[in-house]
Design a protein around this nucleic acid. Structure first.
Lengths: 192, 192
DNA sequence: ACTAACTCGTACGTTCATGTACGAGCTTTT
DNA sequence: AAAAGCTCGTACATGAACGTACGAGTTAGT
């Protein structure tokens, strides 16, 4: 989507505007999934019309913001060492995943409400694949259970992550305990 | 809310209309959380104006529908035997809870979007209390873990239920496996 | 410098569901 | 059977974003 050379007909100032808009969208939508295009343009220090010059619809913009969040997320996740003991690897993966999920939960909600059915999930193909792979490896090692569908286990881990984020947001779970709670919960669910 | 004698100034036909409207709302909102007042009135076989005669706002109506769903849910849940082995009791409680959650997931989403922040959770005080109590009893029996906050365990069970409902809706989990999958997942999460 | 691209204000048009107003007929109730 | 309560159609007002149109001014690229 943001291939730097593919559309290099864009002028430098346009490039800058787009970057500011996407960044503002990520920030705003991550705290209020209903932020309007106007809010976002303002936060980006840009006129609403400029925004519409680059993103035809609000959905476009939300999509771009989510893409950007996933891209930076991938940078973190792809550098994690997933070899060795699967349980330990899972702990490492969860620590980073937790931070990312907690940060972008509202953005995700915004996308879910605006993008076509299933699109959000599709965009998560890469992180989902990574998680599935690790679970499968753990199963082969005998470290993780095999009596429940792997698909379900992958989804379940996501629900736990998002659930914990919601609890923190609601003030029912201290944020400094969250990572620990998530890790222990996931471990029990995976080991049976 | 529906005290039969409290507002007995209502005529019988009005009572009938209200019942049909609430019932239609439950049905429709349980498959489409965005159903309009018009849709609901039509499904109830009633004019939109009649609906507005009884429910001032859409939020009122959604609230009434959820209240009704919770009321019937309570009838089922309150009759469950929660004595004896906590694990077994949990299995029984989950079986019924699963059916209720799966049925009204979309209604819940509708309410979440329309009712004031936290209202939906407050309305679940009774079922939440019941679940919390059982978990606490299991902890005293030594059957359930005590290394995670009880509050979190209660929430987590809810997230698992709702997650499973979402998976079924999306076609990623066969509905005849769901109850079993939920039970096993909750058991592992509670026993550590 | 000259052109094409970009910015951005003001103003307008659109859409869609919500909720209100009015009023002519039907039911209950007593 | 009379009064009070309900039903419900048509029509309208409201509000909130979204998205478009126009056009004058500014900035970047070559």
């Amino acid at each position: 989507m943001a291939a730097p050379s593919a559309r290099s007909r864009r002028r430098a100032d346009a490039e800058r505007s787009i970057a500011r808009i996407v960044s503002a969208a990520r920030t705003l939508l991550s705290s209020d999934p209903n932020a309007t295009t106007d809010d976002i343009a303002q936060a980006a220090g840009v006129g609403r019309m400029t925004l519409y010059g680059h993103f035809r619809t609000r959905a476009d913009l939300v999509g771009a913001a989510l893409t950007d969040a996933l891209r930076t997320g991938e940078e973190t996740l792809s550098s994690i060492d997933l070899t060795g003991d699967a349980g330990d690897a899972m702990t490492r993966l969860l620590a980073s995943s937790w931070a990312l999920v907690a940060e972008s939960a509202a953005l995700l909600a915004a996308a879910e409400g605006v993008l076509p059915e299933g699109r959000v999930r599709d965009m998560h193909a890469e992180p989902a694949r990574r998680m599935a792979e690790l679970i499968r490896r753990g199963q082969e090692q005998g470290a993780f259970r095999t009596d429940l569908p792997t698909t379900w286990l992958v989804s379940l881990v996501q629900y736990i992550l998002h659930g914990a984020a919601a609890e923190v947001r609601a003030g029912r779970l201290p944020s400094d305990e969250a990572a620990h709670v998530v890790t222990r919960s996931v471990q029990s669910v995976l080991t049976g």
